[in-house]
Design a protein around this nucleic acid. Structure first.
Length: 491
RNA sequence: GGGCCGCUAGCUCAGGUGGUAGAGCAGCUGACUCUUAAUCAGCGGGUCCGGGGUUCGAAUCCCUGGCGGCCCA
């Protein structure tokens, strides 16, 4: 108990009173016949004489969201998972004792109501209560009816209250669920098989990120929560599943921001006999499908901007991006020394140990990424930042990879897959060396993965899409915490 | 980790230059049988985030800690 609040005390007193009267404050014997939406959909158009002629009663269960008592009659609003409906209770309809019980109800209580439908003078569809039953007492007062719950900390820490009183928050999470269902349908229609691979891995690979460590007691084995499922999904390509996807949680032991939560939902999919350009096509199709389903339009609001998802989307190389948006000359981007000079000129303070590729990516992330509002596939990624991607056939310093940016945020990362086991082993060894040199986001040599490639992985491409960021885009949410039900907070 | 901002009643918020804390909603009591942010009359409700300091006196000024937001790393 964290408080002695007069309002809580008053509600507890009511529970005690019920108990002493031999009535339950918590019961589970009520079964709704309809939802609020059912009732509105089926009878919302009927006028009073037609409603009066309806022979049946309606049983509605839900939470009291508003009370308007008037002496010997009372209106209240009952809300279930589908909407609200007004209820009208009269002393002469219920009897004195039952009416007194109705008058002792509080906003927040969960009730079952039975009665026939009618329209009020102001034409509102209403249940005329024949019976009102308290099903569950709400001990704590709800936030203010008009302003709702605004305090962001309470909204995240007590999401149940946020959801209860802020309908737009419920809408975001309904949309989240719809999007995830649509993504599954989209991939399954195209022959992708949904799979589940380990979240607890003996070695964290598949992305440059710091992992969480845990320990299996019986095996006395340190395990890592996965930073990506990539290396397992590609093993499945070796095994003969030519199109697979996984849509589930990843964990990265890094900072928290408006676009990062330590656990987040990632979609990864892999397709044999495809390359990264095929992934661009698929990505455009997917986003267009989602926008049409969720918004009914390809022009969607994004903060102060409007994003236009009409195909085809812009393609831009990393270098072009830096030239176009950061105001550098292409001739200034040739060597690490040049890049450091450019970074300095542009006001960036970068780690002096970074090599050519990482410098370019850093400059891009700081100066170009925030300006990519319209959907843009960025290509031309350096080999050194892409240890699992296939080398470009004409320029061996680059890989066949893109990242997708929309609304100034990275939404997806895709590449043609490296399937040469010897090249893969060398890349792993370079990673391992970087790791020994202090880069704790670099991975180690995954011997079994190399062995899998030695059995031949078909030529393929794969992609990861950050589902939380996708939901942010589709619901115009400025923070990742707005699309994660229970974001991580300090305790 | 750094910078800036915030934390006051259950909720939403006010509280120039330091003088012992207010409103609306919610609650309680009363009136009211078609209201819908119901209305009318009355009443109660505070660890001003915690700790320390300055001062005759601190929600207010200073220091320190906590939690959160935004930005940066």
């Amino acid at each position: 108990m964290d408080e002695v609040n007069e309002q809580v005390a008053a509600r507890r007193d009511k529970v005690a009173q019920l108990k002493s009267d031999g009535l339950p404050a918590y019961r589970n014997d009520f079964r709704p016949s309809h939802t609020a939406r059912d009732i509105r959909d089926r009878h919302g158009n009927l006028a009073q004489p037609e409603l009066e002629a309806l022979p049946e009663e309606f049983a509605l269960g839900g939470r009291i969201r508003a009370l308007r008592p008037h002496g010997k009659a009372a209106f209240f609003e009952v809300e279930d998972g589908t909407g609200r409906l007004q209820v009208y209770a009269r002393r002469d309809g219920l009897g004195d004792e039952a009416y007194e019980r109705v008058r002792s109800l509080d906003v927040g209580d969960i009730v079952g109501v039975c009665g026939r439908l009618f329209r009020t003078r102001t034409d509102e569809l209403t249940i005329q209560a024949r019976e009102v039953t308290l099903l569950t007492k709400c001990i704590r007062p709800l936030p203010e009816k008009w302003h709702g719950l605004k305090d962001v900390e309470t909204r995240y820490r007590q999401r149940y209250v946020d959801l209860m009183v802020n309908p737009e928050v419920r809408e975001v999470f309904r949309n989240r669920s719809r999007v995830i269902g649509l993504v599954r349908d989209f991939l399954e229609q195209r022959g992708f098989l949904e799979v589940e691979t380990p979240m607890m891995q003996p070695m964290a690979g598949g992305a440059a990120a710091k992992p969480f460590v845990t320990h299996h007691n019986a095996l006395d084995l340190d395990l890592y929560l996965r930073v990506a499922p990539e290396l397992f999904l590609k093993r499945l390509l070796v095994g003969g599943f030519d199109r697979v996807f996984e849509l589930n949680r990843n964990f990265r032991n890094e900072g928290i921001s408006t676009r990062h939560n330590p656990e987040f939902t990632m979609l990864e999919f892999y397709q044999a006999y495809a390359d990264y350009e095929d992934m661009m096509e698929l990505t455009e199709e997917l986003f267009v499908t989602l926008a049409e389903e969720i918004h009914g339009s390809l022009r969607i609001p994004c903060g102060e901007h409007e994003v236009n998802l009409e195909r085809p989307w812009q393609r831009l190389s990393l270098t072009q991006g830096v030239v176009r948006h950061a105001g550098a000359e292409e001739s200034e981007l040739a060597t690490p020394e040049d890049l450091r000079k450019v970074a300095g000129k542009l006001g960036l303070d970068l780690d002096p140990r970074l090599g050519q590729g990482k410098l370019l990516v850093e400059i891009f992330e700081h100066l170009v990424e925030p300006r990519l509002i319209q959907p843009t596939f960025v290509t031309g990624y350096p080999l050194e930042v892409s240890p699992l991607a296939r080398r470009n056939d004409s320029n061996p310093a680059l890989v066949d990879r893109f990242e997708l940016f929309i609304g100034g945020r990275e939404l997806a990362n895709a590449f043609s897959e490296l399937n040469d086991p010897d090249d893969q082993r060398r890349r792993f060894e370079e990673q391992a060396a970087a790791r020994r040199a202090g880069d704790d986001t670099a991975c180690e040599v995954d011997e079994d993965y190399v062995r899998a490639l030695e059995y031949a992985m078909p030529p393929a491409a794969g992609e990861g899409i950050g589902i939380d960021r996708l939901i942010m885009l589709l619901t115009d949410s400025p923070s990742i915490r707005d699309v994660i039900l229970f974001p991580l907070l300090r305790t």
